[in-house]
């Protein structure tokens, strides 16, 4: 007698890679924002000698990250399915909740990172 289905009911399986990206959506965006802001402003300062460009890069990348994070919170179900998660009743609610909380956690991190340009002059050592 095969009782496999009693223990492991058949149903849609979440994608392994998709789940990783779904779960890590917020922190990955934060990492992207920091990389682009840090690298971009360094290049703008060193090669372009342009504090305005440096500020602009940081502001744009922060805005994009914020839009993406808020978008995720609003359309989480759609994001989940795009990243290979089963539709709602079959989906693991804890994964949903963790993904959402990680986005919430990334919001202040992204905001703080972006707010620096409003408070600190670009392209100077400032001592």
């Amino acid at each position: 007698m095969n009782r496999h289905d009693d223990f492991f009911p058949l149903g849609p399986k979440p994608s392994t890679t998709g789940t990783i990206f779904y779960l890590l959506f917020g922190p990955l965006l934060w990492a992207g924002q920091l990389t682009v802001a840090y690298g971009g402003h360094t290049l703008a300062c060193v090669r372009g000698s342009s504090p305005e460009l440096a500020d602009a890069i940081v502001i744009v990348v922060t805005a994009l990250a914020l839009v993406a994070l808020t978008g995720f919170l609003i359309w989480q179900d759609r994001c989940a399915r795009a990243l290979g998660q089963p539709a709602l009743p079959a989906r693991d609610r804890a994964t949903d909740s963790m993904a959402r909380l990680l986005v919430v956690l990334s919001l202040p991190a992204v905001l703080w990172g972006g707010a620096t340009v409003g408070l600190v002059a670009a392209c100077v050592a400032g001592r």
Binding site: V104, L105, P108, W112, A115, T116, L119, V120, A121, V124, A125, G126, R127
Partner: peptide
């Protein structure tokens, strides 16, 4: 763990960054 630190750390960070930026005007 979330709301309190976000509020307090925002204040501290702003104070810190303003203090740091004062260096540029001293210079």
């Amino acid at each position: 763990g979330i709301i309190l630190p976000v509020v307090l750390l925002t204040c501290l960070l702003v104070y810190g960054l303003v203090t740091m930026d004062a260096g540029a005007s001293r210079a």
